[in-house]
Design a protein around this nucleic acid. Structure first.
Lengths: 215, 215
DNA sequence: CTTCACCTCATGGATTTCCATGAGGTGCGG
DNA sequence: CCGCACCTCATGGAAATCCATGAGGTGAAG
């Protein structure tokens, strides 16, 4: 399944390069799709598997670096830049913005393959992480408005009593919301809920004082 | 206090460059210390304030990039590389390893100053973060061996009863350890303790199952 | 041998959480 | 107008946590 389990996108305006790369990748048992322009790549229907984008800096429509910035807004595969006329500021910018590598032609097959492997591995990681967080985010969306108010109070460490007071409702009602939150978020314990909330970047709104007014 | 609140280290074997940079920085109200070699920099006594390291790639003793890798093991200020004969692979490697920028001579004062500002700001961030975590780490070191065994079980979400069973001790004893942990770690609540443990990268050893064998 | 830190445990009560059952009110879409 | 989702609340008991007091054992350092 080496072939189906990931894919390499090639964006280069030079037909010969596209073919050469395609063949090279095929010889390594990798599936590849080549595009002649940034626009073709962006508008194409791309399979949803771990991938790597081999991107030429000089393209007919827009600059490769600009394309990088454009797609940076959403999800996109790690980029390996290739270029015939690279300069240092471009390479710095590319790497700073997350590119896996920046290769100048002529580059060795070894270097390219290493970069691709790294990119695929990275994408696999990122996808896995994204998938996890997406599940959480979906659960969070299943919460009712009130439950979304209760969650931050609970993970702040407030007692039910305190959280209830904060919302101006009875402790009983808050307990019910709290339990619903635990169920809907599929948290096995409060500790778990706290970690889920962290990953969802739910802010801590209040923090319980150890020695309060009571007792 | 612009002068004392941060410092710039310059490492370049060219005396003229060192002087020119020192003057430039002085004119911007920044304190700078210059070194003629990597060895001088490493062995020097450096003030403990937010800093930036302006590092020439070509040095008499060791390569700037190698120095970067060497000091990467410990704490060190963000690096801004400068070079007269830079190449793309070097710049890629430098940035990948965390350098703030990689400037080729001649570079504009504006570019350099921007890089330095960014580096200082970054160091300020990192130092603040490190200081926070150091406090936590110190508290963790104050824990007794047994308490260090209890902590991961507690933040895993185990009930006292379960954690006690895990350690083969009575629930009462575990409660005492647990309370001591809370006190020593200065955690205001369990939620707090979970977050502290996260920052200390304390692994979750067990995770409580919602509907267990009990009841 | 004494001191000290550490680990161990019990009793017992106050507080909090967990959970089920039962029930009333509001607002919106069908 | 009915159903449905949502928010609200009470009672009441089981379980768990929080906390204080009191106390015994071990091993290492002084």
């Amino acid at each position: 399944m080496t072939t189906d389990d990931h894919i390499i996108f090639i964006v280069d305006d030079d037909e010969r390069i596209r073919e050469a790369l395609s063949e090279l990748l095929a010889s390594h048992g990798m599936r590849a799709i080549a595009f002649g322009s940034a626009g073709d790549y962006v508008s194409a229907d791309k399979p949803d598997v771990p991938a790597c984008l081999i991107l030429d800096v000089e393209l007919p429509d827009i600059n490769g670096l600009d394309l990088q910035r454009q797609i940076a807004a959403g999800e996109h595969p790690p980029i390996v830049f290739i270029t015939g006329h690279g300069d240092i500021p471009s390479s710095v910018r590319a790497i700073k913005h997350g590119a896996v590598d920046f290769l100048t032609k002529p580059f060795s097959n070894t270097d390219l393959m290493a970069a691709i492997e790294a990119a695929i591995a990275q994408d696999r990681e990122e996808r896995s992480e994204r998938a996890d967080v997406d599940v959480l985010r979906q659960r969070y969306l299943d919460l009712t408005p009130r439950e979304r108010e209760v969650l931050p109070l609970v993970v702040s460490g407030l007692l039910n009593k305190q959280a209830a007071a904060e919302l101006g409702i009875s402790e009983v009602t808050l307990e019910i919301h709290r339990r619903n939150v635990m169920h809907k978020m599929a948290a096995a314990s409060l500790a778990d809920l706290v970690r889920l909330a962290e990953r969802l970047e739910i802010p801590i709104t209040h923090s319980r004082r150890t020695g309060g007014s009571g007792a």
